[in-house]
Design a protein around this nucleic acid. Sequence first.
DNA 1: AACTATTTTTAGCTTTGGCTAAAAATAGTT
DNA 2: AACTATTTTTAGCCAAAGCTAAAAATAGTT
Lengths: 240, 240
Amino acid sequence: MSVKEVLLRVPATCRPTSRDREKHELTESIEEYTEGIFRLQEEIEVVSTGDIAKYMGVAPASVTTMLKRLVEIGLVEHIPYQGVRLTTKGEQLSIALLRKHRLVERLLVDFLELPWEDVHDLACKLEHYISEDVASRISKAMGHPSTCPHGNPIDVTVGDGSKRLADCIEGEELTVAKITDERLEFLTYIMQIGLLPNTPITVQSRTPFGDVLSLDVEGIEGTIAIGRDVANSVWVFGRG
Amino acid sequence: MSVKEVLLRVPATCRPTSRDREKHELTESIEEYTEGIFRLQEEIEVVSTGDIAKYMGVAPASVTTMLKRLVEIGLVEHIPYQGVRLTTKGEQLSIALLRKHRLVERLLVDFLELPWEDVHDLACKLEHYISEDVASRISKAMGHPSTCPHGNPIDVTVGDGSKRLADCIEGEELTVAKITDERLEFLTYIMQIGLLPNTPITVQSRTPFGDVLSLDVEGIEGTIAIGRDVANSVWVFGRG
DNA sequence: AACTATTTTTAGCTTTGGCTAAAAATAGTT
DNA sequence: AACTATTTTTAGCCAAAGCTAAAAATAGTT
Ligand SMILES: [Mn+2]
Ligand SMILES: [Mn+2]
Ligand SMILES: [Mn+2]
Ligand SMILES: [Mn+2]
């Protein structure tokens, strides 16, 4: 038997994408939708098709199609025209994904020293390709961290007791807990104004309807003024 | 503006798969084929549609379709009914992918302590999702290794001076260089017979047509007999 | 209650990347 | 040279996951 024949009898273990996928296996898209619905459910009572479409950046019609698939797999319950709710299976998948995502972020930032504001997008991809076992090994190697580099909990089933900065009042002394908007541009801004997790801050003033908060941020000169949107995506612990 | 409205104005940065992909972006499949052709070219003169089909575990018709795409992107030259050749672009892509693959394997084995025989498949997936920058950071963090855990070179442009164990003669004193068949079952067997990279071995005997080699393997009791297929996938350095 | 506006779903289209079966090209043999 | 066998390509199909435009359902207003 020639070398060539031997070579061809040893196929590349890595086969093209869709080949090995059996019907209704969990794809990246399916997982991403499930995770998205989970995040929405954390904030709003009943999640609608339109909410998901806006949140995922996708046409409502695409959501309807995907919901059918998610129902078939048993990840969500869907009452047409009414709304959507994750099943236990869907919740568990989301919890596992969020854990993988945040552990990967820790590896990327703490071990590989990738920029803090950059890693979210990469983690969002990798989370779908690593097993529970790999996640556990990352956890072990990184000393079992409890949050991602942006302060978000690796185990979402345990509350952290933080509140929105938007809900804080004049004079409160706080510590930044987590940043929930992890888009690159947002995190870049957050870094500029020094609101990294664990940073002590004080609310200097708050306008009547809470449109603007003025903050004293440790390590930053002068006073920082932030708007509602920002204050809603920054969560804090009470201090003192 | 309500919390809900704010939430929906902050879309999940992670959008469903195909959404952000523009036409003819390099997909996982495209990369996998390119890499496969590269590996085939290392061994055989002219690579045919059938070779690729066998090697990738795919129908010949699928290869023809994909070749059209690869030509269009400029990764290969294809003369119908004749054969295929990677362009410089295709070679460079392959070199970059192999580097990513093998660096990821190092991270998985050396830092995360995943089993040596297990990591190939995972690396095969992850290689398509990490940037050159991430690869470089892995390289740095792992002390700039020159091979993957199975001995295969991270920079394939530099030769390592190894030869096939199948081409060795009676009495030769050797050191295992690399295992080129990285399928789980094969590596599991290799581990059982102790042929890990860097292991010193001696060829005790060789049958007339080289069908069977009997080896003395350091750390393993008695003599190990291996066949042609195995001896073709194990590469060695001369010792002495 | 009737009309209008919004939301959701349906219908039908697209790309990627597989597949099988049939047709065409190449190679091998008498 | 002609026939046969093998290889490659073409043709036509499928699933996933997007899209737009039209239809249907729900909600809001007079
Ligand atoms: Mn993701
Ligand atoms: Mn994070
Ligand atoms: Mn791969
Ligand atoms: Mn390897």
